[in-house]
Design a binder for these strands. Structure first.
Lengths: 351, 351
DNA sequence: CAAAGTTTTCAAAGCGCTTTGGATTTGGGT
DNA sequence: ACCCAAATCCAAAGCGCTTTGAAAACTTTG
């Protein structure tokens, strides 16, 4: 009977078709939903496949179709500090769900940012993935031109200012978020507002800064460079920067923070000084709705500009899959607005 | 000339061999380091491959060899709360580096824990990966039997109490870590020590509890169930549990915490009550050395049992690769000891 | 210098699937 | 009945690589 068994113990197309007394062609078509097969035979084929636990060899399928049914995520770790941002975890939680529904694999490449270009080239040349999601776009990000040139389908989580060639992206409205947050603090009477931004070559950080500056300029408030910081958004960054800010001669009465992780450090620095957050110093943070670092449960700890990065992962991966399926469709864009949620970290400026 | 181009624009083995006037066999062998090819020709082949930017099609190679050069990580998200633990980010940062060096891809599958078994089966049957890393082992974890039965090479991040069949694992010595931490607190005079553990079906949580209990029993201290909590190690869990503990009639003077993320919540609850951590309530946390949540910079915030999960990722992925290369080698084990680092969250028990 | 052994190379047969182009069957119209 | 188109099905040719078994080239030996 089973003259030749596959290495994984399950049957292959040839065996299945023999079992059914049909050709491989027909069985293949039946399974893949092609129209030129009678509904009755399709039923039979499906039933038999089910019964024998048939599952096509993904490698063979790949080779035959030229598609890999996999999507790549290249995660650059800066040479100075090799770390994977925790928001990435939530992003892929959202994306993973969509991949599963659409039968895509998720393949991750961790690389330092010098080698990133060669990683993309390898992904293309070796045909490992059908498309990639571009993370952490910088201003004038060169990867966009690279991927376009490689004709590798891609979508961007964020945007890249300065790039004119069209591409698909999904972003949160960072500018409006930080502008609204700034205005809110101004409304509360704050006049010296610090900004703990992300690394400023990152596009999202640039946009947040613009929003902040617009908010100030609009009310004819001066822009004091002494109140600005930028850096990798760790807890320690929030802590150390806040210490610096509060040690100044004219310390800020409010601080805008780019990540809830850093905001935890901000709070630590504030409280270490014996000050109270929300009374002595107001804090607004951006909150990616990280599942392990929720912003409080009932009452938010921090007043925050909130947007779920998990949801972004789901939407963006779907966008990429659509793009892969219809490569000639024109680029899609999606701009998510944030909600400004009131927490206990803000209050009127101290007299 | 180039009669037939590959979809990715680069040349294939056939073309390369024609260019060289050699057979595909020889070229293939030359490139893959087989001995039965003259050193001179190998040089020529290598040079030509380099010159033409030849890179083998990974799908074809896969199909021919039966190997995929990929390693799978199945990340179960509990049905109640779908989240990807941030320590996973650091783990894959360590593993990714090793994969890159050894030319392996990393493929991730996010799934809810009901479907986990079918995910492993699919991975095997479809031949997507050559091996998997098992995350978050539970006591008597059924996945170990499954993978053994499937003959899928695997290594475990952690261990599974109750499983007798041999398997490869890497773990931190959770029991000794929590025992030492408990003893340290007892030495400081604490008599009521709370434990905020992870979910207790998880093996690591079980071991930590054992360590804690041993530490107490050894000094003839009573074990008060009212001081125990277990749950998903979020910030909020730390906060809410600590509030509960401190609201009791006989609140603990010290708390052991399973994750630095929860520890942040613990501190929040303590300070919200107007108490001082390290004076009124001592805290020791396990610290996975998460890159975005370092335990302070110079002086640690928390006294902690520390072990780098990033390093664990590197070691364990290497272990798996070795196992894949020599499938008949017997299971490897590696038990990492933690360091107990003194921070400012502990002090003598209040009078 | 032929026989026997070694190295080095090659042609061809897979790996398990898709897909082309053609064959066969079915069914409606006359 | 018969013809023609539509509906089904199939054999065979790939996809780009590895690997087997054999041939060719080159060395060594008697």
């Amino acid at each position: 009977m089973d003259s030749k068994r596959c290495e994984n113990g399950s049957m292959n197309l040839k065996e299945l078709s023999q079992e059914l007394g049909l050709s491989q062609t027909t069985v293949s078509r039946a399974l893949n939903g092609y129209p030129e097969v009678k509904e009755a035979t399709r039923k039979k084929v499906l039933a038999a496949a089910q019964a024998h636990g048939y599952s096509p060899n993904v490698r063979a399928k790949s080779l035959a179709t030229g598609r890999s049914n996999a999507i790549g995520h290249v995660i650059p770790t800066t040479n100075s500090h090799e770390m994977v941002n925790p928001i990435f975890g939530d992003f892929i939680a959202g994306a993973g769900e969509v991949y599963r529904q659409n039968n895509y694999e998720m393949v991750l490449s961790i690389t330092d940012d010098q080698n990133e270009e060669s990683v993309y080239r390898a992904l293309k040349v070796r045909g490992t993935v059908d498309g990639v999601i571009l993370h952490g776009p910088k201003m004038n990000d060169s990867r966009i031109a690279l991927l376009t040139e490689l004709e590798m389908p891609f979508v961007v989580h964020g945007r890249a200012s300065g790039i004119e060639t069209p591409y698909s992206w999904l972003d949160v409205n960072n500018r409006s978020a930080f502008r609204r947050a700034t205005e809110f603090l101004l409304d509360l009477g704050h006049r010296r507002i610090g900004l703990l931004n992300g690394i400023e070559t990152m596009d999202f950080a640039y946009r947040r800064r613009i929003g902040y500056e617009e908010g100030l300029r609009d009310r004819d408030m001066p822009l004091d460079p002494a109140l600005l910081r930028s850096g990798e958004m760790t807890e320690h960054y929030g802590y150390a920067s806040t210490r610096e800010l509060l040690n100044q001669d004219a310390p800020p009465t409010a601080i805008l923070v780019s990540s809830i992780i850093s905001a935890l450090g901000v709070r630590r620095a504030i409280e270490e000084r014996g000050l109270t957050m929300g009374r002595d110093v107001s804090v607004i943070t951006h909150d990616d709705s990280l599942s392990y670092l929720t912003n409080g449960q009932d009452v938010p700890i921090f007043t925050a500009t909130r947007s779920s990065v998990r949801e972004a992962g789901g939407l963006l991966s779907q966008m990429l899959i659509d793009l892969i399926k219809q490569p000639d469709r024109e680029p899609q864009h999606r701009l998510l607005e944030v909600e400004l949620t009131l927490g206990r970290s803000t209050g009127p400026a101290p007299a």
